[in-house]
């Protein structure tokens, strides 16, 4: 697969990863970010491009279980990684508990930041460092929401955390 602008002077890099449980081996230009790879060639447009500079969190995905801004990672540097995007968390028939909670708590308006918020929230839960509502707010501060759904987002996360951490961790795997 040839991704990015044509440049024959630079060799393509063979890169293998598992994305949402599916194995990919791709020939990539080194300057393609994970975000552009997901949204472009792989047509996984659930992950959003907000600022493209690590300032908004809309592109948050899980890389080997950790929440990361996909806009600031070169895809070739992730050879061997296991990547989970919003598309890999649940399906319309069987939503991830965090997706369900976001719907139940009306935790979005326009929805543009939501995939990043949900991936980030799942990362937050598996990190296991929340002891208070203030912790949720601080540890979700890497995801901006211009609609201002923050209160309901925190409610959704609190709700899910009340359901038990093990269940969430399993669902993320």
């Amino acid at each position: 697969m040839d991704i990015g602008s044509r440049n024959d002077a630079v060799p393509l890099c063979s890169t293998a990863f598992v994305i949402n449980g599916q194995q990919f081996t791709l020939e990539l230009h080194p300057w393609v970010t994970l975000l552009d790879l997901l949204r472009g060639a792989l047509e996984l447009s659930g992950t959003k491009k907000g600022c493209d500079h690590g300032q908004c969190g809309a592109c948050t995905v899980l890389i080997d279980g950790e929440r990361i801004n996909a806009c600031l990672k070169l895809a070739v540097s992730l050879d061997g990684a296991r990547i989970t995007t919003i598309e890999g968390l649940g399906s319309p028939e069987s939503l991830h508990p965090m997706q369900k909670a976001f719907i139940e708590h009306d935790a979005f308006q326009c929805g543009y930041c939501t995939p990043g918020q949900i991936c980030s929230a799942i990362g937050l839960v598996s990190e296991g460092r929340v002891h208070s509502r203030a912790d949720i707010r601080e540890l979700m501060s890497g995801n901006l929401c211009r609609c201002g759904a923050y209160t309901n987002i925190a409610d959704a996360i609190e709700d899910v955390m009340g359901q038990g951490r093990n269940q969430i961790r399993e669902a993320a795997e």
């Binding site: 929440r67 990361i68 600031l72 990672k73 980030s120 990362g123 937050l124 990190e127 890497g142």
Partner: peptide, 9 residues
């Protein structure tokens, strides 16, 4: 500093 995502990277 930064955000949890940035600190993870």
């Amino acid at each position: 500093g930064a955000s949890p995502q940035l600190r993870n990277a």
